[in-house]
Amino acid sequence: MSEHKEEYEDSSAALDAMAEEGPVDGEDNLAEDELEALRAERDDLYERFMRALADAENARKRGEKDRREAEQYGGSKLARDMLPVFDNMKRAIEVITPEQREAQASLIEGIELTMRELLNVFKKHGIEPISPEIGDKFDPQIHEAMFEAPLPDTKAGEIIQVTTVGFMLHDRLLRPAQVGVSSTPG
């Protein structure tokens, strides 16, 4: 932009010099009002040019920001669609009894390996689980209260049960952790 400002200043100096000079090769000087009109037109064109240049720069920056956001958050719909797969696999693993683990060790190991791989893919793409612990303080920014119940030996606002794990996609909430919260007065 500074080079354009220099060009503007050079043209301004040239017009001023023309006004101060006498007749050139026998021609009359431009009339003062014509010179003033040329200066006004030059200033207007310069102003419009600088605005167009600023608009182009803003559009470039906006495009770059949009590209970065699309890169980071473009897969959020697919990620949301994968969360029920995670939930179902987690529930399947949680209900395995010791007897089933002995009888179907290979099958259960395969399910657990698939679950670990799913979590690795999530991590690779910036998807992190929100796994609150019982006794943690309820945070409405990342938790969703599914119920409130009085529970002895707890304080109001403490998490007493985690029903569903939540997830963050980079710095955005993909799904809040669904929890039960104590309503016992402190």
Rank of each mutant, 00 (worst) to 15 (best):
125 H>I: 01
35 L>H: 06
112 E>G: 07
11 S>R: 11
151 L>R: 14
96 I>S: 03
45 L>D: 14
159 I>M: 12
155 K>R: 10
152 P>G: 02
110 G>W: 00
160 I>D: 09
140 P>I: 11
33 D>R: 12
158 E>C: 10
5 K>W: 07
7 E>W: 11
55 D>G: 05
175 R>E: 04
79 A>C: 01
113 L>Q: 15
67 R>T: 06
63 G>V: 04
12 S>R: 08
12 S>K: 11
74 G>L: 13
55 D>I: 07
9 E>D: 15
6 E>W: 00
144 E>V: 01
84 P>G: 07
148 E>D: 06
149 A>W: 07
30 L>D: 03
146 M>H: 14
72 Q>S: 04
77 K>M: 11
181 V>P: 01
5 K>V: 14
29 N>M: 01
9 E>W: 13
42 R>A: 04
1 M>K: 11
135 G>K: 10
24 V>R: 01
30 L>P: 01
148 E>M: 05
26 G>Q: 09
73 Y>S: 00
16 D>R: 13
48 R>I: 09
19 A>I: 06
73 Y>D: 03
112 E>P: 02
19 A>E: 13
154 T>M: 08
109 E>T: 04
139 D>F: 00
16 D>L: 09
91 R>D: 07
25 D>Y: 15
37 A>W: 10
79 A>D: 04
149 A>D: 04
5 K>G: 12
36 E>T: 13
159 I>S: 08
16 D>V: 08
25 D>V: 04
159 I>A: 10
78 L>H: 09
184 T>H: 07
148 E>N: 07
96 I>R: 00
51 R>E: 15
91 R>M: 14
53 L>P: 08
46 Y>I: 02
85 V>A: 12
91 R>S: 14
21 E>K: 10
8 Y>E: 00
102 E>Q: 14
146 M>I: 15
178 Q>D: 03
15 L>A: 05
103 A>N: 09
119 L>Q: 14
114 T>A: 12
163 T>R: 05
28 D>G: 05
38 L>Q: 06
33 D>Y: 10
66 D>M: 03
38 L>R: 13
178 Q>E: 13
173 L>P: 00
146 M>A: 14
34 E>N: 15
102 E>I: 10
48 R>W: 10
170 H>P: 02
131 S>M: 10
140 P>G: 08
152 P>L: 07
4 H>D: 05
53 L>K: 12
93 I>G: 02
185 P>F: 02
114 T>R: 02
143 H>W: 02
114 T>H: 01
16 D>Y: 13
7 E>H: 07
75 G>A: 06
21 E>W: 00
78 L>A: 11
97 T>W: 10
49 F>Y: 15
111 I>C: 12
55 D>M: 09
84 P>E: 05
80 R>A: 15
2 S>T: 00
3 E>P: 04
174 L>H: 06
77 K>E: 13
13 A>F: 12
172 R>D: 13
24 V>K: 02
109 E>L: 08
135 G>N: 06
125 H>E: 15
80 R>L: 11
96 I>L: 03
70 A>R: 12
103 A>G: 05
83 L>G: 01
53 L>Y: 15
158 E>W: 03
55 D>T: 05
20 E>Q: 07
124 K>C: 01
97 T>P: 09
64 E>N: 04
128 E>T: 15
57 E>R: 11
